[in-house]
Write a protein that binds this DNA or RNA. Structure first.
Length: 882
RNA sequence: GCCGGAAUGGCGGAACUGGUAGACGCGCCGGACUCAAAAUCCGGUGGUAGCGAUAUCGUGAGAGUUCGAGUCUCUCUUCCGGCACCA
């Protein structure tokens, strides 16, 4: 072994060893508790970025730590391999998406392996393989049978030049990203998954996820958006036909105050009324156009136009005019709202603007209603009573009146209480090539026919190269042509593919049995599921995590898995940030500069003020932000590993910030991490030499019997050993609560304590000094091993510890090492620190009080007067109150 | 607007159940080694006053509870994230 720290060689050897011994390949073992640690799998975009490295390092620390604690740990890895970027790359490079994707996977896998993650690579999967997506198709068909999948028309972005459907991210300022053509909205048939059927459970079960971050649960709850109210209708007659205008309201108690109704521009009634009203038609057009401009939406002025058409109030039979309002959303509720200006702030503003009547129907005692301006209490649900409301007068408005009014509406057959959700069903059809084929065949005679199970998978041809003008599957007769499974006549295959969120909704389940060719899941899933710890970016807080939860519940209801929730614990890691440097051009353009190519300038206190580029000219410092390609402030993990090694990269990432915080990149911080590992390495070799020399002197190799009472041997040794075990105790606690940065700190402190001891005079001649270093390194290397597995693996052998480090148990704290014969207490007078007091361990409260009161630091402040009170906190402090 | 989170030295951050604020790392300052630089090692490093022991102020602001508050309660400010003409 090299005395020089050469991370690349050390890491290569350790990785080769783990690989050869299949160290991280796991099988079900009921004799041990299992621990399934999963990081969100990467999209194979080409190469790893620092966010990946951080994500997988955090996961690896957890994996290795739990392994040491005796768990049977599964950490798998796979590839979220379908998706749009492959098609874009294909167009740019004229390579098939399949080849591009598989090449990227091969490269990124090498990168992951060079970081030394404890991954079971035998379970590796890629979602773009038929072995995987067959089961997307299979479950799709089961969902179709159960009515969870259904077909309806949906709106898509249509590029009229390329004759293709665009994803939302391909629409820039309302225009196609390639053609610049104004994007049109088109209605096409699509498949939907009835996630709304599970809305209640998806919302309610959030409470049973105590180990999910609060904000993720809140985001999901908002997204699902449950509200209680009443759905009812205003009868009307048009073209000789009777109908009702349905609205949803959370304030049914204010129905008696309705003075108008507003409907969305896209509402069918609006379309009908515009037929004989050109002014209205123009207004509706304006509304539809306006809504495209997302940015203005929030600040948009509330506008409306009367239609001259009246509906009947269901309880008073009064006539109520319909308005078209630009603020009414077609996509929420019924696309129509009742207008109660007296008790809704927005309606109030609308009524004032257009001179509509305002009718108070709720009163709060002691508050006066005025038409002059809005007051918060007008919308008070808690304290109001109904007024001007006929038979409802006097009822407490929200509770009693809502019930009474809903009952009356129900009796008339015009409405009832209803729960309204913001959540929509999940449209999964994508008019794209690089995705899971939807297993449907279109037959002129039989309609849409599901592909029979025996014909699965419907295999996606891998040699097509998209050119941007629509889905290439539509131009591939060999794919399109098929026989109808029902009647046998020639038919046409569906060419839409599934949303890639489908792929990632259940990969965590497939990892349990990735090699199972005959079923979607098998019994092994029962052992491994659910995932004990899931780790990934906050950007997936809503969609991915919600879809995965939904999918798990569907699989449960199909009898495929026995769990309700896929992820027991969730950790959302923070983003990786770096400094941003730029120079503004004469024409206002901005040029960015990579931080590592600049001479950084700092002020007297070390703050960055600016920089100088290689051309000698100044560059402006604009602060920190996420690493991004466009801002050139990304750090390439590959270069980092090549320069410093994986252990340094891992140690820096773990040590610099807690996992959930953002991580600010710092080149000097990386250098610091490297310095620590070099110091560890060099000191370990000194210790190894000393230990071997001692063993030779003793003439036995049998190892050590540590002395029972270190304190008697030497105060310095006892103090160092105490420091060691104190830090171990801290590291243990911090591992449990996933605050890994302080685990790294504890390891540094352990090394500092041992190396300080090596410089003390007391250590030199002490017969137990080598023993303490030996014990110290056995603890230090194990504490550090989840973070920097390679260097610790090599040093474990160098120091002659038995077995392999990855099989060594997590070290145990020796509580006796923490005990002290004398304890230093903090002396406070009136809560302020005034000095320190050393007392024997055995001293009781009275004795401590006596010593404290006699202490100089106290008598200085007491002026001989007796104290009002003395607070003694055992083992901590004495506070004298005067 | 609503919901969630946060605010601690020059910087990242530590302080678990209220009990020595600033651990550890980075940066900075000084020193050693060197012809010199890099690397490495040693020492210092919240502000103010003082040669010093020490005093005093100090965890976004203000109040409160307490012998004692970064930590608990209330009010406010700022920042970050999410959602939102949601009926």
């Amino acid at each position: 072994m090299q005395q020089q720290y050469e991370p690349l060689a050390i890491e290569r050897d350790a990785q080769a060893h783990w690989d050869k011994t299949r160290a991280f390949n796991v099988v079900e073992d009921r004799s041990r508790p299992k621990y399934y640690c999963l990081c969100m799998f990467p999209y194979p975009s080409g190469k790893l970025h620092m966010g990946h490295v951080r994500n997988y390092t955090i996961g690896d620390v957890m994996t290795r730590y739990h392994r040491m604690r005796g768990f049977n740990v599964l950490q798998p890895m796979g590839w979220d391999a379908f998706g749009l970027p492959a098609e874009n790359a294909a167009m740019a490079n004229k390579v098939a998406p399949a080849k591009w994707t598989y090449d990227n996977i091969a490269y990124m896998k090498k990168q992951l392996q060079s970081l030394g993650f404890a991954i079971d690579w035998e379970r590796e999967l890629a979602t773009c393989t038929p072995q995987y997506y067959k089961w997307n198709q299979w479950l799709f068909l089961r969902m179709l049978e159960r009515g969870i999948v259904y077909k309806k028309t949906g709106v898509v972005n249509w590029d009229p030049v390329d004759q293709t459907v665009l994803a939302n991210e391909q629409v820039i300022d309302g225009r196609g990203w390639r053609t610049g053509a104004v994007v049109e909205k088109r209605e096409i048939p699509m498949y939907y998954m009835r996630i709304t059927q599970y809305a209640d459970e998806l919302l309610g079960a959030l409470e049973q996820l105590p180990n999910w971050p609060e904000r993720v649960k809140t985001m999901q709850a908002n997204w699902i958006g449950k509200s209680y109210g009443v759905n009812f209708g205003f009868p009307y007659e048009i073209d000789g036909k009777k109908d009702v205008l349905r609205v949803f309201t959370t304030r049914a108690d204010t129905i008696m105050g309705v003075t108008f109704n507003a409907i969305a521009a896209e509402h069918p009634l609006a379309t009908r009324l515009a037929r004989d009203n050109p002014k209205l038609a123009a207004f509706i057009d304006e509304c539809k156009r306006g809504s495209v401009m997302e940015a203005d939406l929030a600040a948009m002025e509330k506008k409306g136009m009367p239609t001259g058409f009246f509906v009947t109030h269901p309880l008073t039979n009064e006539k109520v005019e319909i308005w078209v309002g630009n603020y009414v959303l077609m996509s929420y509720g019924e696309g129509a709202v009742m207008g109660v200006p007296a008790h809704d702030e927005r309606d109030f503003a609308f009524a004032k603007k257009y001179g509509l009547p305002i009718k108070q129907v709720v009163a709060v005692p002691g508050k006066a209603f005025s038409l002059d301006g809005w007051d918060e209490w007008y919308a008070d649900k808690e304290n109001g009573r109904c007024v001007n409301s006929g038979k409802y007068d006097g009822l407490t408005s929200y509770m009693q009146a809502t019930d009474a009014i809903a009952a009356d509406l129900k009796a008339k057959g015009l409405g009832d209480k209803q729960v309204q959700w913001r959540l929509r069903d999940w449209g999964i059809s994508r008019q794209r090539y690089w995705g899971t084929p939807i297993p449907i065949i279109h037959c002129d005679g039989c309609g849409d026919v599901p592909v029979p199970d025996k014909d699965l998978p419907v295999v996606l041809p891998e040699d097509l190269v998209p050119d941007g003008s629509g889905n290439p599957l539509n131009k591939t007769p060999s794919y399109l042509a098929c026989a109808c499974p029902k009647c046998g006549k020639p038919a046409r295959r569906e060419t839409d593919t599934m949303d890639t969120f489908v792929d990632s909704s259940w990969y965590q389940i497939r990892f349990a049995c990735a090699d199972q060719a005959n079923a979607m899941v098998d019994d092994r899933a029962k052992y491994w599921l659910p995932v004990d710890q899931y780790i990934g970016g906050i950007e997936h807080a809503i969609l991915h995590l919600l879809y995965a939860r939904f999918w798990t519940k569907v699989m449960r209801d199909c009898g495929l898995v026995g769990i309700d929730e896929p992820f027991t614990s969730l950790l959302t890691q923070g983003m990786v940030l770096n400094h941003i440097f730029q120079r503004k051009g004469e024409k206002g353009g901005v040029t960015y500069f990579p931080p590592d190519e600049l001479e950084i300038e700092r002020d007297a206190e070390g703050r960055i003020t600016g920089a100088r580029a290689r051309d000698g000219k100044p560059v402006e410092y604009t602060g920190i932000g996420t690493m991004s390609k466009s801002r050139l402030n990304g750090v390439d993990p590959q270069a980092l590993i090549e320069q410093y090694g994986a252990d340094t990269a891992r140690f820096f990432i773990i040590n610099t910030s807690p996992p959930e915080f953002t991580l600010e990149w710092s080149d000097s911080g990386v250098a610091g991490a490297s310095r620590f590992l070099k110091r560890l390495w060099a000191f370990a070799f000194d210790v190894a030499a000393l230990v071997q020399a001692e063993a030779r002197k003793r003439g036995d190799q049998a190892g050590y019997v540590y002395p029972a009472d270190w304190a008697k041997q030497s105060p310095a040794l006892a103090a160092a050993r105490r420091e060691l075990h104190l830090n171990l105790k801290q590291a243990q606690y911090d591992m449990q609560r996933m605050q890994f940065n302080t685990v790294a700190s504890a390891a540094i402190k352990m090394l500092n304590a041992l190396s300080d001891l090596s410089k003390s005079a007391e250590a030199a001649g002490n017969p137990h000094y080598a023993q303490l270093l030996h014990e110290g390194f056995s603890i230090l290397l194990r504490t550090l091993s989840p973070i920097t597995p390679h260097a610790t693996h090599a040093l474990w052998q160098e120091l002659g510890f038995s077995g392999e480090l990855i099989d060594a148990p997590w070290p145990e704290v020796d509580e006796r090492a923490l005990e002290q014969d004398e304890i230093e207490l903090v002396l406070q007078v009136n809560g302020k620190l005034r000095g320190h007091l050393v007392v024997p361990k055995s001293a009781d409260k009275a004795a401590i009080e006596g010593l404290a009161l006699a202490h100089d630091s106290v008598t200085r402040f007491t002026n001989g007067q007796p104290p009002k009170k003395v607070v003694v906190v055992p083992g901590r402090l004495v506070n004298v109150v005067v």
